[in-house]
Every structure is written in C-alpha cells, then in structure tokens.
Nucleic acid binder design. Structure first.
Lengths: 342, 342
DNA sequence: CTGAAAGCGCTAACAC
DNA sequence: GTGTTAGCGCTTTCAG
C-alpha cells in the first residue's frame, strides 16, 4: 500500500507552510492566486486527502452518524435506512452501521463503539427499545449514553420516555385496518402477532381489541396468536388457526412478513385469498405491493420515518429545540388481500 | 450534552500519569494492582471511553471497513451485507456504509470520504464495476484508490482485472438454469434481462445463448428483452412478451425481481405458472422462497459471498497473499415456478 | 512499576 | 498573504 501524504508533504513540495495548505483546502482565508494554484495542482497530482481523524480530533466532529438496526435483511428497516441516508446526505453525514440482530448484548457493544468513535449522533431502532416492559438496566445504559451523544429512537422508547423519539402511530394504524375489516362486513376477526413481549405486538393487540369492542364484536382469545415477526411465524400461526373448527373470516397481522406467511399457508390449504379469508398486514414493505394477491396493509411510511429521524437528529446535533416525540401518521393501503365478506 | 472525559482527567483523579492510565486501558504493561484497581474504578464510574480518533491517528488503524452498495433496498445486497457484518465482527471491524444508488458520481464522492476517514479497507459492490464496457476514468480512479486502501470488488471488476475480487460464477449459474429448462422439455425459451450495458445482463445472456445452441435450440431474438433489474421492469417485459403471437414456453430472468414481475404479469393475464409457462430467476432472495408460486432460481449464496469478501479483505489488510479472483459456485434451486413442458 | 515528553496530522489563533 | 506554534487525546519510547 502506498503511504498517504500529509499536509506537511504538500507544504514542503510547494515551499509554503502547512497553514497555507490548510487555507486552500478549507478556503478559510485568502491565499495568493499563484500559490493557491500551485498547491491545488500538488493536491490533485498526489491525490492528497486530508486525514479526517486529525481534523475530527480538533473539531470534535466526525461527520458520522451511528445507526443500530435489529435486522438488515428486513425490508422495513432498509427502507428506513434509505430514507435516512438520503436526508443525511444533505449535511454530508455518513453512516456507521451496525446490525444488532435484536441481541441486547450486541447493542451494548455497539453503543460502546459509537462512543469510542465519537459519532456526532445516533439512531437506534428495534431491540431493547421495543420491549413491552423495558429492562431497567438496558434503559439506563441507553439514557446515559444519550447524555453524551445526541440520540433519537425510532419506533420505540425507554422508561419514562426520557429520550427523543420519532415513531409511527401503530395504535391508530391498527385501528384503521381493523375498522376496514369491520366495514367489509367481517365480524369474526383474528389477530396474528409477533413476540408478545415486544411493544409492537402489544400495542397493536390493544388497538385491535379496542376497535372490536367498540364495534360490539366479540374478541375470541383462540383467534389471537402470537409467535415472532417472521414469514415462517406467519405460516405456523395460520396453520394453527386453520385447525380450529370455528375459524375467523379475517385476520389482522402484526406485520407484512406474518401476513405473507399466513397467506401462503392459507393458499397451501386450498383457500382463496381474499374470497375465503381477508388478511391484512402492516408496514407496506415493497413486496406487499408485488405479492399475489397484493396485500392490504398499513403503511408506516418507512422512508419518511427515516428522513424525519435524521431531521430531528440534525436539530438535536445543532442544539436546537426539538419535540420529544414526533409521530408519523400511518396510512391504510387497501389492496387485494381483503374484501367484503360474502 | 455532557463533555466526554479524557485520559488526562482520569489520570488527574487517580494521581497518576496518563501513561499509566493508558497502560491499564490497553494492558500493555504491568501496573501495580492497587493503582490498577483505582483507575479501573474511575473509568467505570465516569464511563470513560478512550477517543478512537486520537488512537487511530497514532496507530493508523480505524477499525472501520468502508462499504459501497448500489441499493440498500435490494435483498440480495442486504444479504451480502449481513454475511459480511457477521464476518467482520470476528475482527471487531465496523462498517461505514454508503448507498450509491448506482450513481457513479456518488461513488466517487464516497470513495473520497472513505479515504479521508482512513478506513482500513473497503468493499465495493455494483455500479461502475458492473459495466459491460468499463469506463476508463472511473476504473482508473478506483485502481488508484485501491493502491492506498485494501479493496475488494464483489461481483464485478475493472479494466484488466487489476483488483482483487470475489464473485459468483454467473455464467455457469445461468447455464445450469437454462439446462434445467431444457431438461424439462422446453424448446422455446426466452430471456428477460436487466440493463444491457451491465455485465450481469450480458454475461447471463451469453451463457443463455451458448446453452441453447449447444442443445441445438433456436435463439429467438424477439424473445430476448432487456430493460432494468426491477420488479416493474419484469412486468413490462412480460407484458411485451405476451403480446407476441408466438410465445416461449419458458423464460430465464436476469434476477428474482424481474422473475417476480414477470410472474405477476403473467398471472394477471390469466396464465398459470408453471403450467402455462416456466419462469426462473437468479439470486435466491428470501422472497423467492415465499412467493406464490415459489420461484425456481439460482442461488448466489449471498451470505457466503459477503463473508468471503471480508475474509479476503482481512487477508489483504494483513498483507497476506490472496488470490486475485475468488469464485463462489452458484446453486440451482428448483422450486415451483418451473415444470416439465406438457 | 511509573512519569516525561515526543509526535500522529490537522486547524486556528497570533504574529508579521 | 503567509508563517509559527499550540494544542486535540492518545500511545510509546526512554529514563528513572
């Protein structure tokens, strides 16, 4: 590997001081045209790039935003990321990305790395902040951490809502979806969840029950299943549901993955969706638009969520005032996996 | 924001010199047990984290691997990333991730950032390294860049194969898939591609033609369509194909996205897949396993690809000898979107 | 076992 | 316009 040049090397070659070189690099003060030209030529010739470490050490800014996501292969998260990236570009920030796989210990480890690397700010998604009953110690660690690095939580929170967060209104979103099912004439509606100890599941379940009750419909416990957030989990849950003698005519799923799994298994069992059963997802991952049948779902506006998260973070980093809680309104997207009860 | 402590603060509090603190942090030399304990307690108490910038400046190592991907929302790339992350974890490296959206100018910009930040190494995916006819200048920039930072290219190359790369054998993979179709009795086979100027498309097309010819089958130019790599593109292409009076009984698609689009449009047109037409994809994204029908495809072993790329990069970073070209063997995954011609 | 001091590459006063 | 110099926070000789 070729050694990288330093500002000293350039200065020597140009017969000027390092300060002058620094000035042309940062256009921070006027420099005589001829010397500027000379220096610029040298920089070009040797492909000189100033060392960001050295600069950061001094400026106390790295231009890096740390991100912790729970699952890189989940399209919802990548969509959030894509939105965030787009927005971060406007201020020239780059992402230090880590994948926690929902492992709390890894989260802690990554939190440490972010601090060592002195990221300018960070975004935290999933994992511990999605726990229905937060863990005292984990929350404390995160809060502590946030006192030193501007941090925004996406779709989650910690004890006492102590930190800045932006989140989709999952409760309302679920109400809208269930309401849609009810308006389609369904009276026997089930719920397929993710892990019960995650707030995503419990929030949506609460919304589900409340909407049912307000419509005067019975909430049947045997139609409420929970497992995990994967496609495979959707399959398992639908498998169970179909074994029941008395089956619902519609189900609300905790996310699109579970909905896909549910549809797939239903189809395997010779059901036609939506004729034999309406199935609704949540998230509006790109795939839900392309699946056969196209899936009715609630859009989390993932891209906007990501962009907003960064906007809030940027304000935080600039020491501006920000709302402690920004909410993104979800949208019901009616497609082909739900229909009138006939 | 609370100010972060420095090694000086700790040293002062412990009544020792910074050198001693450094020693306990890095266990780089023996320290008296009692002073060690004292320092450790302080570090714990104030949650002190050494500043990685300062250290990197000295050690000329950042612990960061730069990654340029063309599309964060494409499951193939995220799967590669997930594999890479897993492997990078073994050496404690973290990712500086950038999303080029296939924009060559952005790639250049990100290349610069990687150099400024002095990443220890980098992985480049997609974009310019996938051009059928490489751009002289862009290649030169990348080669130049690689002379200063260990770099590995994934599924692509530059002029003269000047750089280290790991890649799936797309040619062989395509041959396998087409061969499978032929063995199913198909004689009228089409090809749905991505952009024609990308090597992925042209390589696969070459393999397609060669396999057809060797089997004594006619290559019909009107059945060879190219557009882009998206689901939407698959839809458009299938739309065109179905307008033909004489249609193929099977099609090979450049990737799973195109296959999904093709299937969806075919189904919209009341065709049954695979009974009326066999359709094969490429990549084996998770979705292809869950789509209805499940998609026959060629697995790129994305996760392994990512892991291997990092392994090779690690060797490169350690100045070990590495093969200039590591190839990953693809696998044919026969599922439900292809069947015997009846 | 511990401390003093040099230096990593850069920026920002402060002089001239 | 330009040069000198003092750090930024850390590691690492070199002495003791």
């Amino acid at each position: 590997m070729m050694k990288q040049m330093t500002i000293y090397d350039i200065a020597k070659l140009a017969n000027v001081s390092v300060a002058t070189v620094s000035r042309v690099i940062n256009s921070t003060a006027p420099v005589k045209d001829s010397t500027r030209k000379k220096i610029e030529a040298l920089i070009q010739q040797y492909q000189f790039q100033p060392n960001a470490m050295a600069r950061s050490l001094l400026k106390k800014e790295t231009g890096i935003i740390g991100i912790i996501v729970p699952d890189l292969t989940n399209p919802f998260y990548t969509e959030v990321l894509a939105g965030a990236e787009q927005e971060a570009l406007t201020t020239g920030h780059t992402f230090l990305l880590t994948n926690s796989v929902g492992d709390y210990q890894k989260e802690s480890q990554y939190l440490s790395i972010m601090r060592e690397k002195r990221v300018d700010g960070m975004i935290f998604l999933g994992g511990r902040i999605n726990l229905k009953i937060g863990d005292e110690e984990l929350d404390q660690e995160l809060i502590q951490h946030a006192s030193t690095i501007p941090t925004v939580l996406v779709n989650g929170t910690v004890k006492g809502n102590a930190l800045t967060r932006v989140a989709t209104d999952e409760y309302t979103g679920t109400c809208m979806a269930v309401q849609h099912l009810i308006e389609c004439g369904h009276k026997q509606i089930g719920f397929l969840g993710g892990e019960m100890h995650m707030s995503t599941t419990s929030t949506k379940l609460r919304a589900f029950k409340k909407t049912m009750r307000e419509a005067g419909l019975e909430v049947r416990e045997e139609w409420i299943l929970t497992d995990s957030f994967s496609i495979y989990s959707g399959r398992k849950q639908m498998e169970k549901l179909l074994q029941l003698a008395d089956k619902p005519t519609a189900v609300m799923c905790v996310n699109d993955f579970v909905a896909i799994g549910a549809i797939k298994t239903a189809v395997d069992h010779e059901l036609t969706i939506p004729d034999d059963m309406s199935i609704i997802g949540f998230d509006d991952i790109p795939l839900s638009h392309h699946f056969i049948p196209e899936i009715t779902t609630v859009s989390q506006e993932a891209n906007e969520l990501g962009r907003t998260a960064i906007q809030v973070l940027q304000k935080l980093m600039n020491q501006e005032k920000v709302k402690k809680h920004t909410v993104i309104e979800p949208k019901l997207i009616v497609r082909k996996s739900s229909a009138r009860l006939n």
